[in-house]
Each structure stands twice: as C-alpha cells, then as structure tokens.
Write a protein that binds this DNA or RNA. Structure first.
Lengths: 193, 193
DNA sequence: TGACGGTGAGACACGAAGTGTCTTACTGTC
DNA sequence: GACAGTAAGACACTTCGTGTCTCACCGTCA
C-alpha cells in the first residue's frame, strides 16, 4: 500500500494531533507542522484534506488492529476455538487501545459514530477481508461473512456497554457465548478441516 | 473580590477548557457552554473577552497559590525560618500544580511567558502583597519587597530548571541557600521580633 | 550540465467560524 | 407589577482555516 515514510509521518502526526486537540479542533496546518511537511505536500498526499486524511488514518488503524488480532488466531484448534479467540482478543485489543479510549473520552459523539454507524460498514468490511481466509476452512464464504459481521457487531457492543452476563474478554465466558448463540446457527453446514 | 458563583463557574470552565484544548484553541463559546452561561453573560462579566477572562483566571490562580502557601508560614520561628518555608513550600506547590504542568506540557511558549516574562511582574506583585505583612516584622518595607522579588525569581528559576547543587524543595538545601545567598545581604538591618 | 520529480514557501479567494455588541423575551424576586 | 439578571439569537466585523496555484529550490539521474 503506502510505504512512503512521509505519509506515515503525516498519519502519525494526525493521530497525535487528534489525541491532543480532538478532531474538531485540529487543523491541516497543525498536522503539517507536526509531521514536518508543508501544507502543500499534505494536500498532494491526501487530496481532499482533513476528511480523506482521517479516512486514511482510520483504515490504517483498522488494518493494524486486525494484523495484531491475527497473531492470536494462528493455532486455532477448530471453528469454535477460532471464534472464541477472535472475540476474546478483539475485546482485549479494544480495551487496551489508548487512542480509542482517548477519543471516546474527548469526543464521544464522533467516536461512537465511527464505531457504530458511519464507520461500522468499513469495520465489518476489513474484518471480513482479514478473517475470511481463516473462516473459509470451516464455512462457505457467504456464511463466513455473516458470522464475521455478527461477531464484529457483538464485540463492539459488549465493549462499549459491558454486560453483567457476558465478558467476551474471558475465555470461558466467550466460549459459552459462542457455543450458545453462534455455533447452533451454523452447525449443520460445518466443514471439518 | 468576586463572590458571584456564576463567575467562579466561568473561571473553572476556562481552566478546564484550557487544559483540554490549550489556550490557542479555546473559544469564548466553549467556555460559556462549559460554564452553562450564555456568551452574552460572559461578556458582561469579563468585558474584553478572552484576554480579560484569562487575566482574571491567572489572578485567581495566583491568589489561591499564595493562600495555600500562607498556611505553611504561620509558625515561623524567625526570619530565616520564614524565608526557608517560603521557598520550600512554594517549590512544592509549583511541583504539585497539575494545571501548571499540563500547561507547560501543551503550550510551553505561552506558559513560560507567563512565568518568566509578561506574567512575572504580576507574580511578584501578588507575592509582595501576600508576603509583605509577614516580612514586615523583620525588615523595612522596601527591603522586604526586594527579598520577595528576588526569591520569587529564584524559586521559579529553580522550579523550571532544577539544579544539581540546590533543591529548594528540600529543607536543608533551602536553608543552606537562604543562609548563604540571602541573609548576608540583609543581616545588618535585621530587626528581631 | 541540464532535465526532472518532489518539496517548501507563500499568495490568493473563498467560506466558515469566532468575536463583540445589541435587542428581545423570559424568569424569579422583592 | 416593577425590576435585575439572564438566555437566545441577530448582526456586522474580523480572523482563521481551506483548497488551489505558482514559483523557487534541491537532489537525482541521465
């Protein structure tokens, strides 16, 4: 994708400026200064300005998120184990994400929007791209996409509003949840591998 | 002075907005919203807008600073002890001031200006007003003002750039410093009380 | 050496946002 | 029922951010 070190600097600058001042208060110039590039260069890299820049930042963050997540999914024993690991480590990642918690604290409206409304389709899209290869061994493509979408929505929901009943960060709780609510729906069509 | 609870709310709002976004990014409207007053009211309270408002905030912070400091100066045994307590507790106050450390971190330029250039005369002024009554017992008024000014400058300097030689937050070090550099200058005219 | 791609710096017009003032209507108090 | 203080919003004015463009500069490669 984008290997240009200057672009990475700009994205890093956008991230840290965003943490310091919030999306609403940041200007293109702030980011350009922080990144040590001129405004002209920034517009050359991200034609469209702030919107495009922050879109790119969200995509990068999302891809990093799933890259980190993938590490924990490698040795999965079976379909159930794969799903349990998915929700568990995704939950851990979310809870450990400092940038996310800063954004949720300082600008809850926009951040929630990105997690639950405008941004959700992209989250599900990226999740599907990253997780499809892993689920493919167990389920037909369309079914896999369905379960990835469902789990994405659930992980986000339980992260934002923790439940008394379920803690998707806990192995036993996550396993029980998957066994009860997810697996039954797909049982008949399961493929062993 | 100003006992109006709404004014206090506005000053508190200015302080917290300032910590969140920095002086440069805050707007009058942000502060009015945070304080729960209308913009019109805010201009009525502080005619002149942002400048006047933040001036008032600095004055309040400064007076609170010296009010807290005064608590530690009551039982001073003698002139030396008074000066030692002054520099020591002032240093402690400065080091413990979260607002100050936030401001120094997020907007070092403006904050340093307030501590060392534009704001210094006021700091010295308020320090003199607060400390003069305590020093009066030992020194003539003019001499007292001189020593208060000198110590103000020194405490700020050692706070901003700690020394290897001297730690004005430590009782022994502060005492040695006062004995070596301050008392000799005033010894001849000392008045016991 | 000269062409070339990429960059910083700055000018520019435009639009958005903040400012400071004012008027109006509302609310609670005496 | 007069009064003081306030919220809300209109208003003109100014500042600031934006997006685009031009130009000068610099290192690279031919």
């Amino acid at each position: 994708m984008s290997l240009d070190p200057a672009e990475l600097r700009v994205l890093d600058a956008a991230k840290s400026c965003c943490e310091r001042w919030g999306l609403a208060k940041v200007t293109i110039e702030d980011i350009a200064n922080e990144a040590g590039v001129s405004r002209a260069t920034l517009y050359r890299m991200f034609p469209g300005g702030k919107d495009v820049l922050f879109e790119a930042l969200r995509v990068r963050e999302l891809e990093e998120f799933f890259t980190r997540l993938s590490v924990h999914l490698d040795g999965a024993d079976d379909f159930e184990d794969l799903l349990v690991r998915c929700v568990m480590h995704a939950t851990h990642e979310l809870r450990a994400d400092q940038h996310l918690s800063l954004m949720l604290a300082s600008e809850p409206g926009d951040t929630l929007g990105q997690l639950t409304v405008e941004g959700l389709p992209r989250i599900i899209g990226v999740a599907t791209v990253f997780l499809a290869p892993l689920v493919d061994g167990y389920l037909p493509r369309a079914e896999g996409a369905r379960v990835v979408e469902l789990l994405s929505r659930l992980v986000i929901s339980y992260f934002l509003a923790p439940s008394e009943q379920v803690d998707l960060g806990e192995p036993e709780s996550a396993r029980a949840f998957i066994q009860t609510f997810i697996l039954p729906a797909f049982q008949p069509s399961l493929i062993r591998s």
